[in-house]
Amino acid sequence: MGEKETAVKISNLNKYFADLQVLSDISLDVKKGEFISVIGVSGCGKSTLIRIIGGLETLTDGEVLVNGETVKKPSRKVGFVFQDHRLLPWLTVEDNIKLALEKGTKDTDEIVDKYLKLVGLESFKKAYPTQLSGGMAQRVAIARALANQPDILLLDEPFGALDAITRISMQQELQKIWKKENITMILITHDIAEAVFLGERVVVMSSRPGRVKDIIPVDAVCHYQRTGSDFARTRDRIYQEFFRDEEMPFAYNI
């Protein structure tokens, strides 16, 4: 891992909203092609963190480098998937993807077809977003982000609004895409199982202000076995990060 290039380098990042400190002294290196999960309770600043990486929010203090350059504004090379699919309801699936492509891009039809196929929605090209289910719409949003061939994909609780079953299948699909396209991905989540299943490392954040509490490496076996003991062990370890004292005895009583 050590020889791999760094995709995102965060050093001593601090963020204040007026007088309120949201993020405190965050430092994190993400390697090229790596999948990082960031987990924390609501309001811990994890969304703010990913929005800073994506250039949607400014930082107060510190430095964020993406591909060695300071982030000043959002860029097409850093894809961003929001919790809501954010498809324009008046455009078809196809036109939604085309709108996100750079002006003057050639072969837009081929690009649309390719990425819709990747997310398994090639037959919904002409559909309007209202005709799609939540999971399908989110897949279009992912296709839209990927169609720009970003180096990094930032995912801000992308499956948070989906039902449990859809969420699991979406996680599997995202993982497939990650393996196939070899894109660096940073996923914000509040779902421990999701963080373990997808991340090569899980960044655990504490809240008020948000700090990196721990970074837990995840064994690759967890990425295809949700039911194995490795998975359970890693999951429990993260669980204990949040509920250290009171809940522990129960975990061992079984």
């Binding site: 949607l56 959002p74 097409r76 954010r86 036109d95 002006k103």
Partner: peptide, 20 residues
């Protein structure tokens, strides 16, 4: 939120006006 989307995908002014 759509304006934010336009920032992420660097949508030009013309398309921002007419399509969004």
């Amino acid at each position: 939120r759509y304006l934010e989307l336009a920032r992420v995908y660097e949508v030009d002014k013309w398309r921002l006006t007419w399509k969004m």
